[in-house]
Design a protein around this nucleic acid. Structure first.
Lengths: 341, 341
DNA sequence: TGGCTAATTTAAAACGTTATAAACACCCTC
DNA sequence: GAGGGTGTTTATAACGTTTTAAATTAGCCA
């Protein structure tokens, strides 16, 4: 536009700048800054001093070009993760773990409605990142399989059933569903229902298993709806619950895998004139402050997504650093402390 | 770990690869791919052909090093934006606008609780991005001021009162509050209350103005709470509403700037035995599917955050491209279509 | 003093791209 | 056939870093 009055942008200091100021060679400066062992202590001190004085920061592009490392962590974001800040919480935790590392967080949203395998392929093939973060794993997740095959660092939120062990951070959904359902039964409920994620997700099985264990131990009736799941449109859930509540043998307790489904359940039941804590109970998984503050009568078990993100960050950094991958499997236990009935 | 059996990573094609395959020089290939005018049509065709055949993708690091352009758009994310997928929706829209451009979206969360001016300074000074996206603007926003001074491309969600015009995308919060409050009055409400964002945000003034205009036109009573705002903890809002509803001259209508505050209001009122649509009404700003599906009786006016993000993306691209900046100001009008009373 | 080793520093090349300036081929004109 | 375009291609040099290999210095002993 106005090339003659180009703004005198602050000229960024480079290794050359420090070299000229100290009298050392560029190589020496580079070495000193990366704390290479062959540099004398005095030189190292002096170089660091000058560097921080002039606010030197290495040029990411040059480093990346030379080393092949991108210093980028890519987060695959699913459209389902929009609601209630799932993605944002996870990223907040990730960012926390990545503070004071050279890594940047770049987010790749998935527009298609199916798996983001293509995005994974693209990132690996064109080396757009040093590591990958994603969630909503399936038992034989093709993304996990692909990444293992290509020896590409990643951590997923959720487990698989693949025989090769791989890094993951997961929430103990078995315990959640088990404790939640037991709690319903303690409240005297005799026919719990569980609202599950879509069947193809791994953690659907975990939840189901926990639910059924509690059911069998108590020997009560139960119900597992086929028509709805956690990703269903909210009004579908609400309408289904409402309809079901009007039929015979209606459930009187709900184990909800998410806050949104719990809210939808409350509305659906309320449409039938039924009140929470009176005619029925809910125990839900809580990931935000929303539900408990809107409906204090609902009981919840907390899953800390910020912490999850932070753990994932640490594991991924270790994996990128080349550490042994076998014990990189974190299962976060829910802490249950219900008040006495 | 196992350096002797390093995986034979796919060797990425470069300009050199194409040059060798076609017999042209590297420069020619580079030119052909960037559609420089001095390259003959036939050469251009041949080069493009080979490039797409072998799946050539330019090395971002090399481009960035050479050109100084980062091809990165940085999004500053505020902790307040976690709830209800504000950030995620915006980013989804941004990503949409950035499809088929070389730009990547990198997110910089703000851990501190105040302005992210430091992050802005850091990004500009160390040229970490070609453009900046942020929200929650204040009338004399220091970030905007800094960016204008340094001639750095940015688009913010929200306006300022700075004299220098700058690119922004904003929602017409005046119209929202005006229409919402008018609607309450149409419902026969005689003392509307509005729940505003923190006073220092620009759009707080816009909302207030719209609210007061509707109030004055109708000549009804009104109330503006000092104790709570949209960023208050949810239970504060709920408790305040509940307490206020038990005092004399309680409000009978609520203009809510967000879904969460609307839900908190409903709960607070319900604690007093008051029912929505019967003893009081709410008109809220809707940015997700949550509220309407949970509480179909609440009336809402929609703000499309994905669209907002997309618009911001387009504006930012134009700004980076050096286009004239004076008419880069988008004000998104709410579409109001309430059912007949 | 010369020669060997260890410690420290350095020059030069490279990563893949684009910008600058020069070269080449071709056609036209006088 | 020499001079002068024009249209197209090319060699070379950067951008800022790290890596490889070589050079320098110092320390030590014979």
């Amino acid at each position: 536009m106005t090339p003659d009055q180009a703004p005198a942008r602050h000229v960024r200091p480079t290794l050359r700048t420090i070299a000229d100021m100290t009298g050392f060679a560029v190589t020496t400066v580079s070495r000193a800054l990366s704390n290479a062992p062959q540099i004398s202590a005095e030189t190292r001190r002096r170089v660091h001093e000058v560097a921080s004085q002039i606010g030197y920061l290495p040029d990411r592009a040059a480093q990346r070009l030379k080393t092949g490392r991108t210093n980028v962590i890519s987060v695959l974001l699913d459209p389902h993760e929009e609601i209630l800040g799932y993605g944002t919480s996870l990223m907040l935790g990730l960012a926390k773990a990545l503070t004071d590392t050279p890594y940047h967080l770049i987010v790749t949203p998935n527009f298609l409605n199916d798996s983001n395998l293509d995005a994974v392929r693209h990132i690996v093939r064109n080396s757009m990142a040093d590591g990958l973060i994603f969630s909503r794993t399936e038992p034989f997740d093709p993304r996990v399989r692909f990444l293992i095959e290509n020896d590409f660092p990643f951590v997923c939120h959720g487990r698989t059933e693949l025989s090769t062990p791989h890094p993951y951070v997961d929430y103990d959904n078995f315990s959640f569903a088990y404790e939640a359902t037991k709690r319903l039964i303690v409240h005297g409920r005799r026919k719990p229902m569980i609202i599950l994620p879509p069947k193809r997700m791994t953690f659907s099985q975990h939840l189901l298993h926990g639910f059924m264990t509690a059911i069998r131990e108590a020997g009560v009736a139960y119900e597992i709806p086929d028509e709805i799941h956690l990703d269903s449109p909210i009004d579908h859930i609400r309408d289904f619950i409402s309809r079901r509540a009007g039929e015979p043998d209606a459930p009187d307790g709900f184990t909800c895998g998410g806050e949104v489904s719990a809210l939808a359940t409350i509305t659906g039941m309320s449409d039938r004139g039924l009140t929470l804590g009176l005619e029925y109970d809910i125990v839900a998984k809580q990931t935000s402050k929303l539900l408990v503050n809107i409906q204090p009568k609902v009981e919840t078990i907390y899953e800390d997504l910020v912490d999850t993100g932070e753990q994932m960050g640490h594991v991924l950094l270790a994996r990128i650093g080349g550490k042994d991958t076998t014990d990189m499997q974190v299962l976060l236990k829910p802490t249950v402390n219900f008040p006495a009935v």
